[in-house]
Simulated scan of single mutants.
Amino acid sequence: MKSALIAEDHPVVRSMIKLVLKGEGFKRIYEACRGDKVLTLIREHQPDVVLLDLGLPGVAGLEVMDRIKTEKMRCRVVVFTSLEAQFYQDRCMRAGAVAYVCKSKDLDDLKAAVNCVMVGYTYFAQIPSSSVSMGELQRSEKQLIDRLSNRELTILQYLARGSKNLEIAEIMHLSYKTVSTYKTRLTLKLNVNSSVHLRDFALRNHLI
């Protein structure tokens, strides 16, 4: 009996995904609206596939994938997100995802991705050449982003959304000092000098 876990914080989107999964023959469907609930549900129910949004509250999607990989959990991760593939797809592949689908695509793409991964294949978007799709500034900034670890990118996203260091520390189970160190490291790696510029950088590169 096919089973799935939907990790998505928007109820309407969860309902939409559930309809797709039911149409594809899934009988056991579980739901998580926060990233910090995902691993508990995977351990409890051992779903065949996890439909994962990257922008989850609690623990972000990239961090969730890192933890799944670290704990060697047997589940196929399909990323279903509004974040653009050209900035996130390669990173998700390295983190262990077997499919990447943008929410802006037709639902047939989600169906195709689920069916592909269930029979052992992967499903990723074909990304246009960066020389065609990006300007010089964006290309150089993407190279900086690509050098960030998943944890650095996750902390950048939290900072860009306005989260304080203490909030991030509590969410990610890190010390306040560690988050402060990451923040300093990010400003150096991305050549910015304030939280405002970090946010501008994230917005300009579609990271939030």
Rank of each mutant, 00 (worst) to 15 (best):
178 T>L: 10
139 R>E: 14
50 V>M: 05
183 K>Q: 06
68 I>M: 08
96 G>F: 04
159 L>H: 00
42 I>K: 03
150 N>D: 05
60 A>D: 05
28 R>D: 15
172 M>Q: 03
158 Y>H: 06
92 C>L: 10
144 L>A: 11
187 T>S: 10
121 Y>K: 11
120 G>M: 10
5 L>N: 01
31 E>Y: 13
160 A>Q: 00
196 V>H: 15
120 G>I: 01
87 F>N: 04
45 H>M: 10
25 G>P: 03
104 S>L: 12
144 L>H: 09
102 C>T: 09
22 K>S: 07
178 T>H: 12
30 Y>F: 15
138 Q>K: 10
133 S>A: 13
193 N>Q: 14
117 V>N: 00
96 G>W: 00
147 R>S: 13
18 K>R: 12
169 A>Q: 01
173 H>G: 15
141 E>I: 05
101 V>T: 00
113 A>T: 01
170 E>V: 07
169 A>K: 01
12 V>C: 11
181 T>G: 14
127 I>F: 14
90 D>F: 05
129 S>Y: 04
12 V>A: 15
97 A>I: 06
42 I>Y: 00
121 Y>Q: 12
179 V>Y: 00
37 K>M: 14
176 Y>P: 08
72 K>G: 09
192 V>I: 14
59 V>E: 03
64 V>S: 05
91 R>Q: 09
137 L>H: 12
72 K>W: 11
129 S>D: 08
93 M>D: 04
162 G>N: 03
119 V>D: 11
37 K>V: 11
166 L>I: 15
138 Q>G: 08
10 H>P: 03
176 Y>C: 06
206 H>L: 12
127 I>R: 07
85 A>W: 06
43 R>Q: 07
53 D>T: 05
72 K>F: 12
